[in-house]
């Protein structure tokens, strides 16, 4: 997408802003960035009021989930690195710590930024294969794995909750409403009682 925007700027002189629509922070930032770009006070005020309204709307439910999710751990493996930032941030809002994070196509610059952005101790992973991801997942005893749909059965076989974050999704994750959907799904997958039925030998200790 950035590639396309850059070309449009070069060829047609259309300016672009790099934003993320995932998570409350990034969604709000995206709206403000757009408002600030137009440098119109009225637009800015309307944006502020919209953001305030939306945050007030979604936060009570998110706070309820955080009570259950505080202290849980997640692993993230995405296609591009950019999505990972928003995910680390969104998980933080839910009280979930990111144990490891990585991507298939991230560059050194992305990883430097990620390292600075994440809590201390978070493992940064680059272009890992499935067996490496399994090892990280088991060693860090995560409660949730976020990845593409092909990682789903892997997480499930290990007795780990899962949320897919790719183009195939049917329930949107973008915007404030998307953050609610994300929170509901993460809460459902982590809090489901089905994990209690899985033999502790298959699971990582300490997840009961």
């Amino acid at each position: 997408m950035v590639h396309l925007a850059r070309h449009m700027q070069e060829k047609y002189g259309i300016p672009y802003i790099h934003v993320s629509y995932f998570g409350i922070q990034d969604m709000s930032r995206a709206l403000y960035d757009v408002a600030e770009f137009f440098a119109d006070n009225e637009v800015l005020e309307r944006t502020q009021s919209l953001v305030r309204q939306e945050i007030q709307r979604v936060m009570p439910e998110i706070n309820r989930y955080r009570q259950d999710l505080q202290g849980k751990k997640a692993g993230i493996y995405t296609g591009g690195a950019f999505k990972a930032f928003s995910l680390v941030d969104s998980l933080r809002l839910l009280g979930i710590q990111t144990a490891f994070v990585g991507s298939q196509t991230g560059g050194p610059e992305d990883y430097q930024r990620l390292e600075a952005f994440c809590d201390e101790g978070t493992i940064i992973v680059d272009d890992a294969n499935i067996m490496e991801l399994v090892r990280f997942a088991q060693e860090t005893r995560i409660d949730l794995f976020i990845g593409g749909v092909k990682e789903r059965p892997v997480a499930y076989k290990l007795g780990i909750g899962f949320c897919d974050h790719n183009h195939e999704r049917k329930i949107s994750l973008a915007g404030f409403e998307g953050m609610l959907n994300f929170s509901r799904e993460v809460h459902a997958t982590i809090m489901s009682p089905v994990w209690k039925l899985i033999d502790s030998r298959n699971r990582q200790a300490g997840r009961n």
Binding site: Y156, K157, A188, T189, L197
Partner: peptide, 14 residues
């Protein structure tokens, strides 16, 4: 059976 519980857990939760 448990494996199917896991596969469907998000569809039925809550």
């Amino acid at each position: 059976l448990i494996d199917s519980y896991v596969d469907a857990h998000k569809y039925v939760f809550g």
